[in-house]
């Protein structure tokens, strides 16, 4: 190291970061980053920060905070992109095939509502989607989705309660093909990721529907279990991207960090309310700014 540089910079030591990282760990946990994820992130940050050269007299804490922000944004950008589903649907349509999207997740996270929001988005862009109500299990599931479809002006394909969900998905896709609809959105029943039979049923739906996208829906209020949910679904059927719902419930956003860290798949949308317009693209910078505020 040159003498001149030494005079103007200092090296961040283990001691400089200890308290900072301890506080950060607690802050992340309070923001609903899963405990294990938070611990891992903090240890990775320690490696990055210790030994760093910073200008003498600079506000070290500010610099450290900047580095944390950077690292979290970097994580949220794993596989992340601006996705244009409308163009993709039109593109596929020209080849005579609909864009098929299947929605999955545990009970009550917001799959059906998110489908209605996606349908609204396509409809607004001039594409009428077909909605497959492949939840033939939960009481009221068919009526719920039928009403949504009517309200947003989507085509509804349902099934009798107790019917095979895969066949509902199949019917909807066949119908879209024969009538030239460009999008099929497949709703599935909520299921616990630990339920072996129901996960097998989900695999069957996916085998039959051959979706372009498998979308995992996760509730932004979920704590540590978000890691388990993401891993199980990703291992069972594979997840292409994630929608984080109920973000409007004053969620801190740590759940996003846990999910992306667990399966390295991007979160592309946030659900921010119960209206059809309440679906936003996820913006890493914005989410991290909120998380660390």
């Amino acid at each position: 190291q040159k003498a001149a540089e030494k005079a103007t910079t200092k090296t961040i030591s283990e001691k400089d970061v200890d308290e900072f990282l301890q506080d950060l760990l607690m802050e992340l946990i309070e923001s609903d980053v899963a405990f294990e994820t938070a611990e891992k992130l903090v240890e990775e940050l320690r490696k990055r920060l210790v030994g760093l050269q910073v200008p003498r007299g600079a506000d070290t804490r500010k610099i450290l905070e900047g580095k944390v922000h950077e690292a979290l944004v970097e994580l949220l950008k794993t596989g992340w992109r601006h996705i244009d589903l409308v163009s993709e649907a039109k593109e596929k349509c020209r080849r005579g095939e609909p864009l098929v999207i299947v929605f999955l997740g545990v009970n009550g996270v917001g799959k059906t509502t998110t489908i209605a929001k996606f349908a609204y988005m396509f409809k607004k862009a001039g594409l009428t989607p077909v909605i497959a109500a492949a939840d033939t299990f939960r009481a009221g599931a068919q009526e719920q989705l039928r009403l949504h479809a009517e309200r947003v002006g989507a085509v509804f394909v349902g099934g009798r309660y107790g019917a095979d969900p895969a066949s509902v998905a199949y019917d909807a896709i066949q119908m879209a093909k024969s009538r030239g609809y460009c999008v099929v959105l497949v709703d599935t029943a909520g299921r616990m990721h630990t339920d072996i039979d129901l996960m097998e049923e989900l695999r069957k739906i996916v085998r039959v529907a051959k979706p372009d996208y498998k979308v995992l829906v996760v509730d932004a209020l979920t704590g540590n279990d978000a890691v388990e949910q993401a891993k199980f679904f990703d291992e069972a059927v594979g997840v292409d991207f994630v929608v984080l719902t109920k973000f409007d419930a004053d969620a801190k956003g740590g759940t996003a960090i846990s999910v992306v860290d667990a399966i390295k798949k991007p979160i592309l949308f946030l659900g921010v309310g119960q209206r059809y317009e309440d679906l936003e693209p996820m913006e890493p910078e914005k989410l991290v700014a909120k998380l660390l505020s």
Partner: peptide, 12 residues
């Protein structure tokens, strides 16, 4: 209350 809910449970 959902068993999976995290830190927000208190405030909610």
């Amino acid at each position: 209350i959902d068993a999976a809910m995290g830190q927000k449970s208190f405030d909610l």
